[in-house]
Design a binder for these strands. Structure first.
Lengths: 338, 338
DNA sequence: CTGAAAGCGCTTACAG
DNA sequence: CTGAAAGCGCTTACAG
């Protein structure tokens, strides 16, 4: 079916060794044969079988990517960054969506192992002890993307979530808000939950706003679908003028909910997001948010994984990339009485 | 490093043949050895090398997926459907994002070939002659997803775009609109452009509304980013009461634009989308749209590709899946004077 | 410079 | 039932 190196050798009237050489070390074969071989390759449209090569080199130039929820727009640019870096470095990506199911995750991990991927990119979710054990047994290079682990020494790339939330809440405070609420993920989530909550609390504390500390509603999913409960926050804490939200998905769902209840954003209440997913620029009003450099996170993760794969020195185990505050229409500024 | 079949054989004190047999035809080896081998496998955490297997079986259980623009929410559920079907049928997906760049596409196609994927899923974009030539030379099973080709006999799964647009516009007409505009993709796009435009025109014609035929604005991108120009439609055709849009992305961008200009949807103008991406339920107002069964399209595509790979009979070359109209808040109903 | 041979990790007739 | 051997498509010392 597909032409093999033998077919090329036969057509060019040389041994398969020479064919292999013109592909891998062309300078070692005299021009005459080299061109003969090249012609044969062209003619047959020959391309080497990556399986055979992978067997020998013990390298497949393939990376396995684990995404917890592909529907979340947050991952789109992460993936794009990964793709571009992969293209540059010569890798292909096997992208797997776990829908946050442990069985799926493990099954994908196993198939990564069998397929001999060169490394794994694990995105967003916390590393539980049994996950870590599995990674350890797999014994493959892993980079944690938008997540990290303090218990285990695993390389990672992410923003400083605590600081980012802190800066976000500070933005609200600087805009004159004195009664702020938060829609948070469950605190058991050590990435998007706990640290963002901590940042919220620290900003309050440093501004003598600790009375807001309990204006919190927790959601138990990651996407807007699960919201609705989020709007409760206003019923529970009717005095707040701004809501800091642990993700854009949540913020966007919240805005939609508030609109249904006839509550105007930002006139009656300000909403601030977190992530800066693409849709945050198309909501009404557009979302003020804490931006993550998602494309860069993806890009950098692949570069980092590549250095691991090549066994090179990687000075920074837990890399932190910068976040920024993006001011748009969903937050209102008050005169700050100073 | 990783244990191989030899390590298992040694530990179990049998030949590698027997090890292979307990994995592929356990009933052919007597229980005593079988359990010894199984114990050794467990102990070493042995998993067979898929490269070596692939070399022999000439099957990698891997499918290559080409996505034109991963940022477009339209693909999220397509991918989920593909994943679930792949899981069921034992495939892994190599997902590649081309950003609609021909060089990237071809480079990915080549690496699919080298990696010996069992088949290819090509999503959304038209098949140009040089693309077809490339597919032909690759000589691998291909299924076209959300696209098809009338010139070439390539299997495909998609909705009936013309009919779907027709039904969408008819919905608007049934709601009492008599002056309708359209934001369309370029007509050179034989998938999302031409057919949806045709459906629009047919609906007008059958309802004696042909005077609306020229109320069209064309956009030259696929995402909301490129909109803005879309709002022109109101300047050019101030009398329209409804805008039919060739995609939700476009519709959502349009609604955002209209809001900026202080034009109320649906009070002053109705907007209808196409696709039913997840975000269409979170816009303000929520988007009335023509829904594509994206998850099913992805799922079915993989099943179809699987039958091709297995050389089985596939009765329907160009499969059509059903669309539906979803009525939400972005369209207004008028009293229909009958 | 170049071909024959060994080997990457498996599977599967082929003998026994 | 089971082991030795050949072979999948390559690469790379090793001779010459």
């Amino acid at each position: 079916m597909k032409p093999t190196i033998k077919d090329v050798a036969k057509l060019a009237n040389v041994s398969i060794s020479t064919v292999s050489r013109v592909m891998n070390a062309p300078e070692t074969v005299i021009e005459q044969k080299r061109t003969k071989v090249q012609t044969a390759i062209e003619k047959l449209k020959y391309k080497p079988n990556a399986l055979a090569r992978g067997l020998i080199y013990k390298k497949t130039n393939t990376l396995g990517v684990v995404i917890p929820d592909i529907r979340n727009a947050y991952y789109a640019d992460i993936i794009r960054g990964m793709e571009d870096a992969s293209k540059k470095l010569g890798y292909n990506l096997i992208i797997c969506n776990t829908d946050r199911d442990k069985n799926r995750l493990f099954s994908y991990l196993h198939s990564f192992y069998e397929k001999q991927v060169d490394g794994i990119l694990y995105t967003s979710d916390p590393i539980y002890p049994d996950y870590y054990k599995e990674f350890e047994r797999l014994n493959m290079p892993v980079v944690l993307v938008s997540t990290h682990s303090m218990e285990y020494n695993m390389p990672s790339v992410k923003i400083d979530d605590e600081q980012a939330a802190y800066d976000g809440v500070n933005y609200l405070i600087a805009a004159g808000h004195r009664n702020i609420g938060m829609v948070s993920f469950d605190l058991s989530d050590s990435i998007a939950g706990q640290p963002r909550y901590q940042g919220f609390v620290r900003a309050l504390r440093e501004n003598d706003l600790e009375h807001c500390k309990h204006n919190i509603v927790y959601v138990d999913g990651w996407t807007t679908n699960t919201l609705g409960e989020g709007t409760q926050i206003l019923e529970q804490f009717p005095d707040i003028t701004a809501i800091f939200t642990a993700s854009d998905e949540l913020a966007l769902g919240l805005i939609s909910d508030l609109h249904d209840r006839g509550i105007a954003v930002p006139e009656q209440i300000s909403v601030m997001g977190f992530d800066n997913i693409r849709w945050s620029s198309f909501s009404i009003p557009r979302l003020t948010t804490v931006a993550q450099p998602t494309y860069e996170i993806g890009y950098r993760s692949v570069e980092k994984l590549d250095t691991l794969i090549n066994g090179e020195e990687d000075p920074i185990l837990r890399e932190i990339v910068p976040h920024t505050i993006i001011e748009r229409g969903s937050t209102k500024r008050y005169e700050v009485k100073s």
